[in-house]
């Protein structure tokens, strides 16, 4: 129990161990720990930055997609409108052309009919005259019976 030189020995040993720890043990361990700490902090910061960039990019892509969709809708609507316009226009043109062709055909037909009627009338008249002349020979005076003949021609 009594104090002796062990005390001095222990004090010296203690100071030596403390000095050793101070110089050779503490600094490298602490350096490694601090380094790891900053490395982890850097990694977390980078991860956060990456996540933010990813979010930005996805927002941007979403926006681009929306814009593209809207544009496609516009283009489609315009194309539809234009197509129906073209169809309407073509329909109108075709109607006009058809009317024209029909009218022309009517005209042609009417003219032909008139022409044919005139021809027929003339021929019938001549035939009637020729027939009558043959039948009556001299009994009939062309001049005297001209009004009868004409009346006949108009009746035909």
């Amino acid at each position: 129990m009594n104090l002796n030189a062990t005390l001095i020995f222990q004090s010296i040993a203690f100071l030596l161990f403390v000095a050793f720890t101070w110089k050779y043990v503490w600094p490298p361990i602490l350096k490694a720990m601090n380094e790891r700490q900053s490395r982890i902090a850097d990694g977390l910061a980078a991860a956060e930055k990456g996540a933010r960039a990813l979010q930005d990019a996805s927002t941007k892509s979403e926006e681009a997609l929306h814009a593209a969709r809207a544009q496609a809708q516009d283009i489609l609507a315009a194309a539809n409108k234009q197509a129906s316009q073209i169809v309407e226009q073509a329909k109108g043109t075709a109607q006009v052309e058809a009317d024209r062709i029909v009218a022309k055909a009517h005209d042609d037909v009417a003219r032909e009919v008139a022409h044919a009627r005139e021809d027929l009338r003339k021929q019938v008249g001549e035939l009637a005259v020729a027939g009558a002349a043959k039948i009556l020979k001299r009994e009939i005076d062309t001049k005297a019976h001209a009004d009868v003949l004409n009346e006949l021609a108009t009746k035909i």
């Binding site: 062990t6 001095i8 020995f9 222990q10 203690f14």
Partner: peptide, 11 residues
């Protein structure tokens, strides 16, 4: 050993 503990505490 009281010498050891005093060696520490006196340091």
């Amino acid at each position: 050993d009281v010498n050891i503990t005093f060696g520490l505490s006196l340091s």
